[in-house]
Amino acid sequence: MTTTDSRSRNSPRELADAELQDILGDMIQARVASDRAFALQRQGRAGTNAQVDGSEAIVVGAAYALDPATDWVVPQYRELVGLQRFGSEVLDRYVMYIKGHPNGGFHPEGTNVLPPQISLATQIPKAVGMAWGKKLQNEPGCVLTFFGDGSTSEGDFYEAGNLAGVLDAPVILFCVNNQWAISTPNHEQTRASSFASKAEAFGIPGVRIDGTDPVAVFHAVADARERAVSGAGPTLIEGVTYRLAPHTTADDPTRYVPADDLAKARERDPLVTFRAMLVEAGLWDDERQREAEAAADERVEAAVRRADETPLAPDHGFTNVFAEPTPRMVRQRAEMRRHLGLEDPR
């Protein structure tokens, strides 16, 4: 059931030239945002955050195969910088999130992306439940959830993959295999021949693809989406790539990532290889590259500005726990506001 040839595809459509250019633009923006987030942490202007470097082709390629109007993305955390296709709000909220702003988890109606999920693999049951709900309500579209290679060792992955199979849920389980779960390499994570092979246990197709090629990712996800929305059920996709940055701002990979391996992986940096492909096809040049980088810088700068300018309520934690706070929470909130010298809440 597991296939590895990304060219054996039944995708409903081919990507147009302009889409290929947009995909590279979004990949560049993802990398710029990720690097900027790292720098913000070093400047003390953001908390610990995780870099997307190496996974841009997966996130952006997948996003282009989905329909932002009907489909949902249920991410882990690395992917949020690459989901521009699902709305500009995603990057704005992500920047708020890593800065520790309490409004960072909010996505407005029409932005079908859940906020970052820190607890690994716990989003997979949720994604399956959302897909199940779509099916029950005869809603169009599907749900795609991202998780890492390490997450495939979690119980939630197995429980949710199994349920997805039983229900024929319109869900795409996307394993971003970047070879490392912080410091744990693939071969210490599993004895399975691949992560995609785990689909066998769920009775669903498993597909293993080159995760550095956004076109391969696009076609694999488009195929899986076609299966999902036609009622044929879920697909497990393993996109193979390499983590080109530390796990997070708090990590020092020089302690465990072999330098040679990293150097080899850098030769297959999706931003380098895909750009070369588009240059060769006459779809990209240095001028476009400069424009794309400048636009990305500007875009990320705007997100940082918005985060810095969004007012902060110290008692925001009391809102959005319940529709109506309990009397005890009302009392606590009033106490907090008195302690902080703020006026009584409405």
Binding site: T122, P125, G129, G133, Q137, E159
Partner: peptide, 24 residues
């Protein structure tokens, strides 16, 4: 609407969260 689930408490609750997010 009345479903026997695979024997897995984690996904019984986890999928309930997703179902609720979808409007059920």
């Amino acid at each position: 609407r009345v479903v026997d689930m695979p024997l897995a408490e984690g996904v019984i609750i986890g999928s309930a969260v997703g179902l609720a997010a979808s409007g059920m």
